[in-house]
Every structure is written in structure tokens, then in C-alpha cells.
């Protein structure tokens, strides 16, 4: 036990801690038994007890009713996962570039088809039939692409879940996705540029 007494009486600190009940139980008991026997120390406790009583009467103060609203107006909430599911493409700029590339590619395919048709000197009817064939192929391809996009966005949702649990995964998977998409684009370009209209040549 610390030195709680001075000249046979409890120290100021001991009296204070006794009143505040801020000492070990056995210490408080020792203080208590001294105070009960010692008139001088008992007299000293009066002021401390008065103070503790006054302190105990203090209550917290409520802020205004609109407090929480005012705070929430100024808080930047982290973007919830649900709002990010459509954002599997890295940025708006990249999305614009992708849209422009898709438009160019489509124009190229149609232009190429027309050019090929003009080169092989087709009868107009056969050319139209051929173009209609291209168009239906193109539509089919578009349907497949839309399905692929939907598939990708659902993958995106799964992806966000993964991303929340495994940090650092986002970059790796983003890169992988870009690689796959680039590969598919190059492959498609290759197919288009090496296309030989063999039947048209045979006909000519």
C-alpha cells in the first residue's frame, strides 16, 4: 500500500480518492476505518464529498434536433458496392474511347463489305443478298456481344465482392480483363482482314 498517511492522518489525496471512490477496495476500506475513528479527517472529507456530490449532479447536454442532419449533409459517404456494379470499365474516358472504337469498327466492316462487293463486280441483286447475309451475321454477332456484356457486368458484381475481401486484386484482374478483350479484338481484326470471299471469286 502506498503512503496514504502523513503525521498520523490521511493525506489530501487519500481523502480525495476516498470521496471519488477511485482507489482499490482494500485501500478504500482502510481510509474508511480511519475516517470513522478520526474527527479531523472526517471533517476534511466534508468538502471532498460536497465536491463529488456536485460533480455527480452534472448531466450531459443535448445538441439541437437538427444536429445529425447537419452532420450528414457534409459527410462524404463511401460509394456503396451496389452503385459501382455498372462501373466495371475503368473510367468514363475509357468508355468513350471504347464506344468510338466500336463505331469505327462497325463503319469499317460495313465499308469493307461494300468495297469487297464493288471489287468483285457482282450483279446488284446478288450483292444485296450478300449484304443482307452480312447484316444478319452482324446482328447475330451483336446479340452475342450484348449477351457477353451482360455476362461481364454480372461478373463485375461478383468481382466487386472479391475486391472488397482481397485487396490488390482489382488491378490484376483489370489488367487480365483488358488483355482478354484486346486479344479478342485483335483476333476479330485478323479474321476480318484475312477474309477471302472465295465463293464470290468462283462466281466471277
Amino acid at each position: 500500500m502506498k503512503n496514504w498517511t502523513s503525521e498520523g492522518h490521511l493525506t489530501e489525496l487519500a481523502l480525495e480518492l476516498w470521496a471519488a471512490r477511485e482507489a482499490e477496495d482494500h485501500e478504500l476500506q482502510a481510509f474508511e476505518s480511519h475516517i470513522q475513528q478520526c474527527r479531523a479527517c472526517k471533517a476534511q472529507t466534508a468538502e471532498w464529498r460536497g465536491l463529488m456530490l456536485a460533480l455527480a449532479s452534472l448531466r450531459g447536454t443535448e445538441p439541437s434536433e437538427s444536429f445529425a442532419e447537419h452532420v450528414m449533409e457534409r459527410v462524404r459517404l463511401p460509394v456503396p458496392a451496389a452503385a459501382r456494379t455498372g462501373a466495371w470499365m475503368p473510367s468514363l474516358a475509357l468508355r468513350r474511347i471504347a464506344a468510338a472504337a466500336a463505331a469505327l469498327w462497325s463503319a469499317g466492316v460495313i465499308g469493307g463489305a461494300v468495297w469487297l462487293g464493288s471489287r468483285v463486280d457482282f450483279p446488284a441483286g446478288a450483292l444485296l443478298t450478300r449484304l443482307a447475309g452480312y447484316a444478319s451475321d452482324f446482328l447475330l454477332a451483336a446479340v452475342i456481344r450484348i449477351a457477353a456484356l451482360l455476362h461481364l457486368s454480372s461478373l463485375g458484381a461478383i468481382w466487386l465482392e472479391l475486391q472488397r475481401s482481397v485487396p490488390g486484386l482489382a488491378l490484376a484482374a483489370g489488367l487480365a480483363l483488358m488483355t482478354i478483350m484486346s486479344g479478342a479484338a485483335i483476333w476479330t481484326l485478323h479474321r476480318v482482314t484475312t477474309y477471302q470471299p472465295s465463293r464470290a471469286n468462283a462466281h466471277g
Binding site: G60, T61, E62, P63, F67, A68, V71, M72
Partner: peptide, 9 residues
């Protein structure tokens, strides 16, 4: 906010 607005204020 509900828990801490009173003590913080």
C-alpha cells in the same frame, strides 16, 4: 451520431 452526439456536444 446517435451514440455520441450528446457526449461530444
Amino acid at each position: 451520431l446517435e451514440r455520441f452526439r450528446r457526449p461530444v456536444f
